[in-house]
Design a protein around this nucleic acid. Sequence first.
RNA 1: GGGGGGAUGCCCGAGUGGUUAAAGGGGACGGGCUGUAAACCCGUUGGCGUUGCCUACACAGGUUCAAAUCCUGUUCCCCCCA
Length: 401
Amino acid sequence: MEKDLKAQQRAITQRTVEVLPLPELKRKIEKAVKANKPLNVKFGVDPTSPDLHLGHAVPLNKLRQLQDLGHMVTLIIGDFTARIGDPSGKSATRPQLSEGEIRKHAQTYTQQAFKILDKDQTKVVYNSSWLSRLNFNDLIKMAAKFTVARLMERDDFSKRFKENTPIGLHEFLYPVMQAYDSVVIKSDIELGGTDQIFNMLAGRDLQEKDGQEAQVVLTVPLLVGTDGTQKMSKSLGNHVGLTEPPKEMFGKIMSIPDSLMIDYFKLCTRLTDEEITKIEKGLKSGKLHPGEEKRSLAKHIISIYYDRKQADTAEAEFDKVFKEQQVPSDITEVKVSSNKMWVVKLLVETGLASSNGEARRAIQGNSVKLNSKPLDDVNAEIDIKSGDVLQVGKRKFVKIS
RNA sequence: GGGGGGAUGCCCGAGUGGUUAAAGGGGACGGGCUGUAAACCCGUUGGCGUUGCCUACACAGGUUCAAAUCCUGUUCCCCCCA
């Protein structure tokens, strides 16, 4: 374990939004170092989506950093809570998942999370193993420790209430359960995105009422998605998946707004504060070109999940397609039912358009090319041979096999 | 338990008998400009081999030459009173 208290503290609080409360964190660190006993860091995830993206990676990176300092992570798979769905930041009740889905998601989740976390310093637990054993009595006792007024202070709830969208009673119970998780695992620190503050503070309350030492709450920023406005999430389609091919990652990262670059550097790469400050200053003064820095950002990120070489390949591929307007090297190949076909049908059959209407519109909108030559006749009958490359827009390609 | 209001396309939202595949906005997609950035400009945004036809305004029926618009029932949501 890192013995230097100052270094510990600096590292733990680095790139976080809030530490609640800071003095307690100092105390905990001191105690841990003195006794050479790692802190138990709680991190809860709801296995609601099977794929992790850069947004999930933000807290995971932080956890890894804590592990590198010598601490233990307890990764709680919220297989029980997932059945409810965290209301945090949501404007509507979430659909409830089936047990089968949850199991499956949990598996891919941990698999992907270990791309970042250290297995030896991680304990994986499922909260159904204790939550499902509680009876109504236990629940009432716990629920009595929270007030409706307190719950309604939450932005998401009060907003939904004001807007007349329904709030399920079970959603009120979500923070209660998450808090109970903290009691069960006796966490020292709970880490989460800023949207988790309420739930995590509830954990402190419950621990205290249970006679335990309360956990310290550590929040990390929420990563904004590639659209530049909303929190990264798969359902909004603004995510960069951790298992996506390097080429895709590169393209997506290049499309983020400039204003997001520094955030991404801070939250998604392993560059030091000094390095990032240098880039930030360079960009501000105009010494550095944003396009170039974004490339470097993309390569840094890809190198974490793949390696430098594949990052470079992704960049070269990107240039080929977008700078030199050439055809990418690995295009999906598609079989076609006939070698002479109506253009519109061809686009639908190759999957480049989902309906005849869409295909027509694409042609009329001048975005369809066959072997880099524009097609503009909606009624054209086309001779197709193997190896022909069909293109819609700038990035959808298909090769006829 | 009683009374009232509402459900429109991906989302928000206009439309209260015919000229409405449904205004407007957002989003998305395509094009231009660029650095696949932002901003801005233009176009598209139910299906169909498409100057036409079909399906659509919660669901199921009905009135009418004609219904998103009127009537009845069903489902869901909201509000007020208890």
